[in-house]
Structure formats: C-alpha cells, structure tokens
C-alpha cells in the first residue's frame, strides 16, 4: 500500500466520520424535546459533518485526480460562516414567538428581559 492509497483511505475515513456525525445529528433532531435543544444538535453536528465530508472529497480529488478544487474549500468556509447565524436566528425567532421551553428546564433569565410585563404578572 503506497502513500497515495493511504491518503485515499484517510479521505474515506473522513467521509465516514462525517456521515456518522450527520446521522447522530438526525437522531438528535428526533429525540431532543424542544426547539432550543434541537438547535444544539442541528448547528454543531451538521457543521462538523459537512466539514469532514467536503474535506474528504477535497483530499480524494486532490490525490486521485490531481485536481485541487477551491470550490470545496469555499463551501466549507461558507458553511462555517452561515450555520451559527442560522441557528441563532431560528432560536431567536422561536423565543420571540413564545415557543415554550422543555419541561424540567432551569431558570430563564431572558424572559424578564424580553417580556417584562408578563414577568411582573406572575
């Protein structure tokens, strides 16, 4: 087994890790109780899975075809810039339209800040 093959195996393992993380992220979307905890699974795991998959594809095409695809690197960059902002916006919109938290949640410091009138009533 020469060096090129070993690097190709590394790419294969990267893509495998990416798919496993993405499956776990999907499990998280099903199992977790509310919007906010689901957004944890969605933002973090999907970012890492996309990163490893694209990186694996990049390495594979580089070693196998000798083709350096800058578009894959740009894709990684764009996912990194946009995924946390998307998660933040979805959480924020959910909180502002008063989606309740899951049962058994701890204290909620944001409520008195965003909806002061309800806080005084309770």
């Amino acid at each position: 087994m020469n060096v090129n093959q070993m690097i190709e195996w590394a790419a294969v393992i990267l893509i495998l890790i990416g798919s496993i993380v993405s499956v776990i992220s999907a499990f998280g979307m099903i199992r977790l109780p509310d919007v906010y905890t689901r957004s944890h699974a969605a933002t973090k795991s999907s970012t890492l899975s996309v990163l490893t998959c694209l990186l694996g594809a990049f390495i594979y095409f580089w070693v196998h075809d000798g083709f350096v695809s800058v578009r894959l690197i740009l894709g990684i960059l764009f996912v990194f810039v946009t995924a946390p902002v998307a998660g933040h916006l979805i959480c924020r919109a959910a909180y502002r339209s008063r989606v309740p938290l899951a049962k058994g949640s701890g204290e909620d410091e944001l409520k008195s800040k965003l909806f002061p009138e309800e806080h005084t009533v309770k």
Binding site: S25, G28, A41, K44, A102, G104, S105, E107, D108
Partner: peptide
C-alpha cells in the same frame, strides 16, 4: 452532543 443524544435517558436540564 453525541453523548447527550445517545444517552438512553434524556436527563439534561436546559436553561438560559
């Protein structure tokens, strides 16, 4: 996240 999701019992306590 992997640990939280794959735990058989969901006993985490989310908070702001």
């Amino acid at each position: 996240v992997l640990k939280v999701v794959l735990k058989p019992k969901l006993d985490m306590q989310p908070a702001f």
